[in-house]
Structure formats: structure tokens, C-alpha cells
Amino acid sequence: MNPPISSAEGLAGLVFLVMLAATGFGALIAVNAERTIRAVAGLALCFVGVAGIYYFLQSPFVALMELLIYVGAVCVVLVFAVMLAEPRPEQQVGKRNAIVGGLSFLSASLLTWGLVALANGAAWCKAPMRINEGSMRDLGQSLLTTYSMVFELVSVVLLVAIIGSLVLGRAGRSKA
């Protein structure tokens, strides 16, 4: 199938390309930017792209949660961390020396290459049938039936995280 750019599918394909670009570009900024704040901005851009990719994977719910949680919460928390613990201006997001940099680049590209080769080389077999459509209703149902235990555990983890960060955050404070 070869959709023309003027059709709806073609436009969707174009938007998908934009999302891919945002993801990749954002990720590159996130690891290469000199200043922490720009790295966080890059991370946010990357997450917006990832949300778009999720949307194309037919799960708008997860896409919106990605925006809500990652951009609206995690990135904001990171910016707060930057504000409260601003690194020295001369080495904002300090990098290790050139040898380590080169080595890590090498190993990371090897890893990526391996994964990509695996992804493209393997013969993925499609599931014979689908038991549901993966819609929001199905999602909610399985979240509260099959995965209810995990759901509860995650809420415990979140509670522990809240209490833990409160304890850690208050510990060093000189006055209330």
C-alpha cells in the first residue's frame, strides 16, 4: 500500500514522521545538552514524541497518560530538582573524559545495532486471534480483574515513594 500524501493516511504518516523526529531529537538533546535544564526540555520533547507513537499504536489512553505523567509530572519534578540543586555553571551536566565518552558511545551503538538487527531480522509471528480490542473498557476491566494485585502493589509503591521522599526531603532542613 502506498498512500499519497494528500490522503488522510498520508497526512497521518507525515505526523508519525514528525513524532519520530521529536522522539529522536529530544532524546539526543536529553543526553547531549550542556545545561541540565535543556536536557530536561529535550526529555519532555522526547516524551511528547513517545506519546504520539503510542497514539499510533492504537492506545490513546496510554498516550495521554504519558503526557500527563511524564511531561506534566516527571519533567516538572526534574526541573524542580534542577532549581533546588543547581550544579555549578562551569560543568552543568558534567561529562566524563573523552575515553569514557568514546567507549560508552561505542558500547551504546553496538547495543543499539544489535537490538535493531534483532528487531528486523527476527521472524515475528502474529498472534492467531485477539481476545479483545485493547480498548479503554478492556483495559479497565483487566486492570481491575487480572492485574488487580499488581495494581494494588503499585499503589503501595507509590505511597512508599511519597513517604520516602518526604522523609528524605525534610531530613536535612535546618528549620521547618
Binding site: A27, V40, C46, P87, G94, R96, V100, S104, A108
Partner: peptide, 22 residues
């Protein structure tokens, strides 16, 4: 591919970065 790419970039950053936030 894009997943692998993100993973690789993250891996590179983890080795490369020196600050906790990075």
C-alpha cells in the same frame, strides 16, 4: 527500532553523564 534507539541513547547517557539528574 525507535525503542532500540531510545534504549541505546539512554544507555549512552547513563555511562556518559556524571550528575545525578543527568
Amino acid at each position: 527500532t525507535i525503542g532500540a534507539f531510545l534504549f541505546g541513547i539512554g544507555f549512552y547517557g547513563l555511562l556518559q553523564r556524571q550528575t545525578l539528574i543527568g
